[in-house]
Design a protein around this nucleic acid. Structure first.
Lengths: 126, 126
DNA sequence: TGATTAGTTAAGTGAGTGCTTAACCAATTG
DNA sequence: CAATTGGTTAAGCACTCACTTAACTAATCA
């Protein structure tokens, strides 16, 4: 269960898979709907979907002969929070640096500090 | 220049490279400082650094015989904004869905809407 | 000066990726 | 029923990846 981050980032490193995720961010879709805009065979798309499912970004259910795919927003948020953690580290270092340089507000270090340190709200109450 | 996203996500898909980025988020470091905690040969680390530099996440300069590496926070922010765009799509869809269902506030659709749609502040003034 | 330290280049290897085509199954339609 | 539609599996292939060892350069130190 640990380092799904490997799988998530690997999944997103492919432009076709990102296109699928972008499509699913606008709503559910069947396998062939997802395949239609992509310049490759159906089996290739299914393989991409398997990668996305393995990463946890996408889930799907089959009804009759059509499989419906949907995005797992929580998985997306979990990946995003890695970036936020890096930015938090960065800001913390700048804060310490600014303090060390003897300044209150308005020091050179604090000039470069960016705003968004806050975590996003949880996407589900459940 | 387009789809640096491929390169950035590919770079971050490797745990050793993420470890390097995490280290650099706390401040600059030399090649051997970055290599020390990693269970692999120095050339392997250098190859990872080349991947990170090619992605734009890391830059470096050489002074004497030591190369100092640093994180490019802007590149990190650019990658993060892809996630924010997906969440924005998602929320927009939920909004439309909620509207369609005839509700104002408090509809089932709006219940699931998460907070962070805003873009982060630019990290540099320039 | 010669030894050490910091980093780099080159070549090779085994495992994994992103596709393909061909064959196939199972639900739905005429 | 047979034909079509939606999806799946399997095998193969060119390419890339994450390492390795060995050999090397250049800056600094004793």
């Amino acid at each position: 269960m640990l380092n799904q981050l490997d799988d998530v980032f690997h999944a997103l490193a492919d432009p076709s898979r990102r296109a699928i995720v972008e499509r699913l961010a606008e709503g559910e879709a069947s396998v062939s709907e997802l395949a239609r805009p992509l310049p490759m065979s159906l089996p290739a798309v299914i393989q991409h979907l398997q990668v996305l499912e393995a990463s946890g970004l996408v889930s799907s259910t089959k009804a009759g002969r059509v499989r419906t795919c949907r995005l797992d927003l929580d998985a997306l948020d979990r990946a995003q929070s890695w970036f936020q953690a890096r930015r938090a580290d960065w800001n913390q270092r700048l804060d310490r640096l600014g303090e060390y340089l003897g300044g209150a507000q308005g020091t050179a270090a604090n000039e470069h500090r960016a705003a968004s340190t806050e975590r996003q709200a949880p996407s589900r109450k459940h």
